[in-house]
Amino acid sequence: MQINLTGHHIDVTEALKGYVDSKFERLERHFDHVINAHVVLSVEKLTQKAEATLHINGGKVFADSAHEDMYAAIDGLIDKLDRQVIRYKEKKNSHRPGAPIAAAEEE
């Protein structure tokens, strides 16, 4: 997965980049069809904001999170993305012909 990390009113340090990379490995464990990710870290007065767009096969997934601490905002962002990716994966798998759910309804 290719991760594009940009900062808006913030310097993206190696520590932040390493933290984002380590957190996005969690998404790769659940779903490996992520093509690339665009992550924007920004500061608005006292609020630290992290937002990301994932390009996956068949669509895009967007999430954002805001917190007083940038690391906490990144954690919240990854939690939201993880839930959305799992939901996308389940939805994609449930629409296959001959799925176990459809076979159970026929009986």
Rank of each mutant, 00 (worst) to 15 (best):
A72D: 00
G59N: 04
T53N: 06
P100G: 05
L27T: 02
I3N: 00
E90S: 12
I74W: 00
A63S: 05
D32P: 07
G59M: 11
L46D: 10
H9K: 15
A99Q: 12
G59T: 09
Y88W: 04
V20Q: 08
H30S: 07
A15M: 09
I35S: 03
R26K: 15
S65Y: 08
G76F: 00
L5V: 15
Y71D: 07
D79H: 02
K89W: 06
N36M: 10
V40T: 12
L41Q: 00
Y19C: 02
Q84A: 13
E105M: 14
D79T: 12
D64C: 06
N36G: 11
K49G: 05
V43S: 09
Q48C: 02
A15T: 14
D21Y: 11
T13D: 05
K80F: 08
I86T: 10
A104E: 15
R29L: 04
Y19L: 10
S22G: 09
T47N: 14
E106H: 13
K49T: 01
T53G: 05
I3E: 10
G58C: 07
E25R: 13
L81A: 06
G58K: 07
Q84R: 14
E105W: 14
H30A: 11
I101M: 15
Y71S: 06
H33Q: 14
G76Q: 01
D82W: 04
A99C: 12
D75R: 02
N4K: 15
H95R: 14
L46I: 00
A72R: 04
G7F: 08
Y88S: 02
V34Q: 05
H55F: 04
K45F: 06
K80C: 03
E68D: 04
I3K: 03
E14F: 06
Y88R: 10
E105N: 13
P100H: 04
I74Y: 09
